[in-house]
């Protein structure tokens, strides 16, 4: 009998088998680590997309109803209502492959073969004008050669440099404004009780 000790090990758990690791280790990184063997073309992807994805994401990735938009939105990031898509916002193609394979189609995850995910990823590149050839074939081999347009625009967390964070110190307690405060904006959604009143709104969305 002895007490807990951070340095020691406990001999708990069992070795993970290679097949077990392979079954769960489906993540893909920007440098290509984790990409499986295989390939798929834009044309193959179009068929798959129409059959499995378009009901929600629209035939061209434009999004049906409130389902996510997957294509378009280039050059909107500084605009009033930016549209963040694979083509306009996402930094890495690996994320597309990884995410579609793990989580799509929504409601039937893990149902696509590796080749199918290559094809769908190729088609999403096509819908976003990153490739323009319908015969383009995406594969493990050419994958890391493709870069998404917005990659360079991601920066490190620099919140600390913002004016209100940079100047620490005791905040003002009295007469902090020259004039009495005046109301500049009222809540737009007046009835928040779900089911009671009008639930429709022009408001934003949650991510």
């Amino acid at each position: 009998a002895g007490s807990a000790d951070t340095a020691k090990t406990f001999g708990l758990g069992r070795p993970a088998e290679a097949d077990e690791i392979a079954a769960w280790d489906i993540d893909v990184r920007p440098d290509g680590t984790g990409l499986p063997e295989g390939s798929g073309t834009v044309a193959e992807g179009e068929v798959l997309f129409t059959d499995n994805c378009a009901t929600c994401h629209g035939d061209f990735g434009e999004g049906a109803g409130r389902w996510p938009v997957l294509a378009g939105g280039q050059d909107t990031l500084k605009e009033d209502r930016p549209e963040k898509t694979i083509g306009s916002y996402w930094p890495y193609l690996s994320t597309v492959y990884d995410y579609v394979r793990r989580a799509m189609p929504y409601g039937n995850a893990r149902s696509l073969s590796d080749d199918e995910v290559y094809a769908l990823t190729a088609y999403l590149l096509y819908l976003n004008d990153v490739v323009t050839d319908e015969e383009f074939k995406l594969s493990k081999e050419n994958f890391t050669g493709i870069h998404l347009p917005n990659e360079a625009n991601f920066i490190a967390d620099d919140r600390m440099a913002e004016a209100h964070n940079a100047n620490k110190g005791d905040p003002c307690m009295t007469n902090c404004m020259a004039e009495p405060a005046r109301i500049t904006m009222h809540a737009r959604v007046l009835d928040v009780t779900p089911g009671a009143g009008d639930d429709e709104t022009s408001g934003g969305s949650v991510d």
Partner: peptide, 17 residues
């Protein structure tokens, strides 16, 4: 869709199902 395409082979793998 190719539902299950990846699974057929998986179920034959060694390890905890």
């Amino acid at each position: 869709a190719a539902a299950g395409a990846g699974l057929v082979s998986r179920s034959a793998l060694a390890g905890d199902p």
